[in-house]
Design a protein around this nucleic acid. Structure first.
Lengths: 205, 205
DNA sequence: TAGGATATGGGACTTTGGTCTAATAGGGGA
DNA sequence: TCCCCTATTAGACCAAAGTCCCATATCCTA
């Protein structure tokens, strides 16, 4: 597994802002890709790696907040640092409540922006990691047959095969069969590992 | 276990604001307690139940943000809804980054405030619940002897007693003894339950 | 209609975990 | 000095889980 390089996306309709941001961010060795509108960014291929988005609030067409909403809807995980020339409090509140990493006013302190970008990349990395892990677990759960899923959810509560058999009204022998398949399909080498997966996938109420 | 009643604390130096807020919030059946300064609130006994704090930003003495910082430092879990007459973007950003539930500008929409308060109470409830659960688990972990803790962390990775014994260079028999004590002290009725506790307490890297 | 996936079970066997009793040994506090 | 906690181990035994190999009965699809 190669460590993918982080990319900083910049979406701002102002050409000079894009240029100065690019200069600033590339100066610390980060890769940059710029877009002059939210729609351009939405049209581009979702980047499969740690990504940060430096996003202007006020733009013709889709606004920064609109873009944020679209990305959330499309389940594209980018960590956003907002920059605004004429923002207001409700905007900043909405942005942060929707998960933005920071919200800076123009003219911003260069170091503050770089800090925010680095933090966003870090957060994005761990977010992506947690997400892919969860996806894998859920995909495995989907590969279970209905009966296996039933056994799975009872097993991870700590019930004995005997008890599960009674609960489901079938033989303990059959539970063993299902259970073995669950362990195999979930790729769990131990009950402890299975329980951890269940915990992450929120199988418990 | 009796369900403790939620309380809405109001901290604002303006008498008339306190009064109108109290009227509004009690009108939906919530209990209210008011304070005219941040220090007064800090001096009062930490309430052990779901709590929401409606907090003014600008006040003589400690500001709302100062109070938020103090509460965080003191590990007092209250969910905060900020209200501000003369706030600005950096303030709102700081407040939300520090975990505030909402940040409303005066004059605020009454329904918006009530919604925020209700949301804050909900969040506070689940926060408190997760916290007390975590505390219990950590207290139990602390009650383990060093050797037991070692066995604990190896057990929850799914290792067999035999493997743990080899890893620790002692007899499998001893592992069984430690393991039994771990289950007892952690109040886990099954390996699955133990693994879930370990997951919550972040025993894994 | 043949084959695959699913669900169900039995028999026989091994490994693993849990429990009970009992014992030894060192460190530290009353 | 004596007792408690901690750590260590043994033997005996039972319960639980996992693993073979096997068989039957659906249901759905190619």
């Amino acid at each position: 597994m190669t460590e993918t390089e982080p990319i900083v996306f910049i979406v701002d309709d102002d050409d000079s802002v894009r240029k100065s941001l690019t200069r600033l961010i590339t100066s610390v060795g980060l890769k940059v890709k710029t877009f002059s509108s939210a729609n351009d960014f939405l049209k581009c291929d979702p980047y499969d790696g740690p990504a940060c988005l430096v996003l202007d609030i006020r733009m013709p067409g889709l606004s920064g907040l609109d873009l944020q909403a679209e990305l959330t809807k499309a389940q594209r995980t980018v960590s956003i640092v907002f920059i605004s020339g004429h923002g207001n409090i409700p905007m900043s509140v909405q942005a942060l409540k929707a998960g933005a990493v920071d919200f800076l006013e123009k003219p911003f302190d260069e170091q503050a922006l770089l800090d925010a970008v680095h933090l966003a990349i870090l957060k994005n990395k761990s977010l992506r990691q947690a997400q892919t892990e969860l996806n894998q677990i859920q995909k495995r759960i989907e590969s279970l047959t209905p009966r296996e899923r039933e056994v799975f959810s009872l097993v991870v509560t700590g019930m004995l095969n005997k008890q599960i058999a009674f609960e489901m009204g079938i033989s303990e022998k059959t539970i063993k069969v299902h259970r073995a398949r669950v362990m195999q399909k979930m790729q769990a080498e131990s009950l402890a590992a299975l329980a951890r997966m269940a915990e992450k996938a929120d199988v418990y109420p």
